[in-house]
Design a protein around this nucleic acid. Structure first.
Length: 701
DNA sequence: GAGCACTGC
């Protein structure tokens, strides 16, 4: 095995860590930082006073890196070296190096906010800026003061170490070279009218003119990928026999069943070039070996949240320079590579954002704010929490409003008893609230099922392909229809049927449900039930088989519990038609998503009130996953909405959270409000501008 | 009457 570059820096790293509490380590792909940093610190004796914890944004990474390190140290995985991911804790009291997902570390923080069992925390892949990593970075900054002996390392693959260093009081930044081969970057001379056509042309050019090596093409989504695969197949076949080598064309995206995804890991037959047409799943999550050529469309599909409307949208936006470089790097893993960017260098230099807008500025923050509130950090005010890139004030206020309407915080912004229980549940706050109410109303079992089903929902239905869709149109689905009351009820009924079939995998296959997704649901439900047993004070009724009782009552209790949980996701039907307007937000006109099983009454009317799981703007604003509720349940929520006072929720919480103690400027967190507002508004404007440019170009073609 | 990138507790 060739020596990893990072080992040449062992002395330097040890020394720097010795002398500093926080160190940023910049290491490109192949530097060995993920596997070696923990071992270096172990050799230096840091594992004597506690565990060396290394976080990863993804489960597979946590598991595979832990396995590798256990192997290198010749120990049994789970003994001295272990990992922890959801549903799987492979550590023991012997463990001194522990790899875990950042979500897992946050969970551990609930019972131990100072993370006392750790002597070292390494936040790996921090440049990906996942929501959880960002929260952890804020918490680490606070721990610096509380745990002076703890060592904190932040690792990043890109060169924006200065920003992180500034955040952590100008801590040192170490650079470790990677093992990537040089990649030649080739730009288009102008913007393509259709990047699909442009990608096709470049792909064929490579196939005809360039030496062997696989081609990785970055597209935005499943539709484009399927079109590209079809066209590329046609064109390759029409090439004259013997003019060039064979070709295999493989799609690669998240909704592809796992067995088709793994095809990219089997090497191609001899004298055959592979074309992998992928979403940004191939940017970080999956690494395809053998890629020499990358074709970069310059676009990505990104989900963003608008805190003033409570609506998500899924937009095609320009990638950032960091992303463009990451994509290019995929060509240099095995040898010299080439990256063809389907846009001019001017676009790269002047139009692309430096870095991707971090997730924390694109998501609803109700869950994260509840988490921070539940830690009850006496010195922290949520609106002034020190984030590397603060979310907008509007976004934080939206989170506070949501939490207030579902009783997780009181009118002064203080966490309630209910809120504390909610924070224990690994669910969105709306569903946590539903579970707690359901336990009161005697329908916890049903609510557990609904929550678990919604947690897995995207992976339940098999990948749609146009042909299969048409075939499936008529053979009537035998799945239950939610009794016309909506999608939550349908999800419940589906699971209950599966339960009656003794969780038979064949039943899933027969009903076009993904076995893996349903198994996941079952596991989530089990986990949620265990947590409810722990947090609920009164009796907990978990029997999964009381189907008849709730259904005889039209699932009234369950729907009532959902109504309490989704207090901030309520819509009222317009009088003359079946459109709805949302309540509680800047009122939006929305429609029930056509995939919904919600039914009209004998007059053709949909229910007057519904709650929705999610607002998503695609071709139009839609409510996805809706459930019929009743006016009498809604009225108390409406009253609460009227009473809502954001200033009290956010402003005065400061005084009460600090227990009346005087807080001097400079002893707590730096106050960063102005920056917060401007930074994210600026980001949003840029996203918007990029989107408009894209749409304009699309309209032109 | 529509269609969804990717993670994670």
């Amino acid at each position: 095995m060739a020596a990893l570059p990072i080992l040449n820096f062992e002395e330097k790293i040890s020394e720097t860590v010795e002398q500093n509490q926080v160190v940023v380590v910049i290491g490109e792909t192949g530097s060995g930082k993920s596997t070696q940093l923990s071992q270096i610190l172990h050799r230096k004796g840091y594992s004597k006073s506690g565990i060396i914890g290394v976080t990863q944004p993804r489960r597979v990474a946590a598991v595979s890196v832990a396995r590798r390190v256990a192997h290198e140290l010749s120990v049994q995985l789970g003994d001295e070296v272990g990992y922890a991911i959801r549903f799987e804790d492979r550590t023991s009291n012997k463990t001194y190096i522990k790899y875990l997902t950042d979500g897992c570390l946050l969970r551990e923080g609930l019972s131990d906010p100072e993370l006392k069992q750790y002597s070292v925390i390494i936040l790996d892949e921090a440049h990906e800026r996942s929501l959880n990593t960002d929260i952890l970075m804020g918490l680490m900054k606070r721990l610096m003061r509380l745990r002076p002996s703890m060592k904190i390392l932040i690792t990043s693959a890109t060169l924006d170490g200065e920003k992180v260093s500034t955040f952590f009081s100008n801590c040192p930044v170490l650079q470790v070279p990677g093992k990537l081969y040089p990649v030649e970057i080739l730009y288009s001379t102008e913007r393509p009218k259709s990047y699909l056509q442009a990608a096709l042309k470049v792909a064929l050019d490579i196939h005809i003119k360039e030496p062997p090596g696989d081609v990785l093409i970055f597209m935005t989504g499943q539709d484009d990928i399927e079109k590209m695969v079809t066209k590329l197949e046609e064109r390759v076949q029409s090439l004259e026999e013997g003019t060039c080598m064979d070709a295999i064309i493989l799609p690669l995206h998240g909704s592809l069943p796992p067995e088709l995804q793994v095809r990219v890991f089997s090497p191609p037959p001899p004298n055959c070039r592979r074309f992998i047409v992928a979403t940004n799943i191939a940017e970080t999550s999956l690494t395809v070996d053998g890629v020499v050529y990358v074709i970069d469309s310059g676009y990505v599909k990104q989900r963003q949240y608008n805190p003033s409307t409570g609506m998500y949208s899924l937009d095609v936006v320009q990638i950032s320079r960091v992303q463009a470089d990451q994509r290019a790097g995929r060509a240099g893993r095995t040898s010299h590579g080439k990256c063809y960017r389907l846009y001019p260098s001017m676009v790269y230099r002047e139009e692309l954002l430096e870095a991707t807008v971090p997730e924390i500025q694109r998501s609803s923050l109700a869950g994260s704010v509840l988490y921070l509130k539940s830690l009850e950090l006496p010195d922290i005010n949520i609106l002034k929490f020190d984030f590397l890139d603060p979310p907008s004030r509007e976004s934080l206020e939206d989170a506070l409003k949501q939490l207030y309407l579902i009783d997780a915080i009181d009118e002064n912004g203080l966490i309630t008893e209910v809120g504390r229980k909610m924070a224990e549940l690994p669910l969105e706050p709306s569903l946590s609230r539903t579970l707690i109410e359901a336990n009161v109303l005697g329908c916890l079992s049903e609510a557990l099922t609904v929550s678990a089903m919604l947690s897995a929902e995207t992976s339940l239905l098999p990948a749609r392909s146009k042909g299969a869709e048409r075939k499936r149109k008529h053979p009537a689905s035998h799945l239950p229809n939610g009794s016309g009351l909506g999608d939550h009820i349908q999800l419940l009924q589906i699971f209950e049927e599966w339960h009656h079939e003794n969780y038979d995998p064949q039943w899933c296959v027969h009903n076009d449900l993904q076995v893996r997704g349903m198994m996941f649901t079952k596991e989530v439900r089990k986990q949620l039930a265990q947590i409810m047993l722990k947090v609920a004070k009164g009796p907990v009724d978990l029997r999964a088989n009381k189907k008849s009782r709730e259904s005889k009552h039209d699932y009234r209790n369950l729907r009532k519990a959902l109504c309490i949980g989704y207090a901030n996701q309520l819509a009222e039907r317009k009088i003359h038609h079946n459109g709805y307007r949302t309540l509680g937000y800047k009122s939006q006109l929305v429609q029930v998503h056509p995939s919904s099983v919600l039914e009209t009454d004998e007059y053709g009317h949909l229910p007057n009130y519904v709650v929705y799981h999610e607002l998503i703007a695609t071709s139009r604003p839609f409510m996805r996953n809706v459930c019929a509720v009743e006016l009498s349940w809604v009225s108390s929520i409406l009253k609460k909405m009227e009473k809502l006072d954001v200033n009290k929720l956010s402003g005065s919480s400061y005084a009460s959270e600090s227990d009346g103690q005087e807080r001097k400027e400079g002893t707590g967190m730096p106050i960063n409000e102005a920056a917060a507002g401007n930074a994210s508004e600026d980001h949003l404007n840029k996203i918007q501008a990029a989107r408009e440019r894209y749409l304009a170009r699309k309209a032109n073609k």
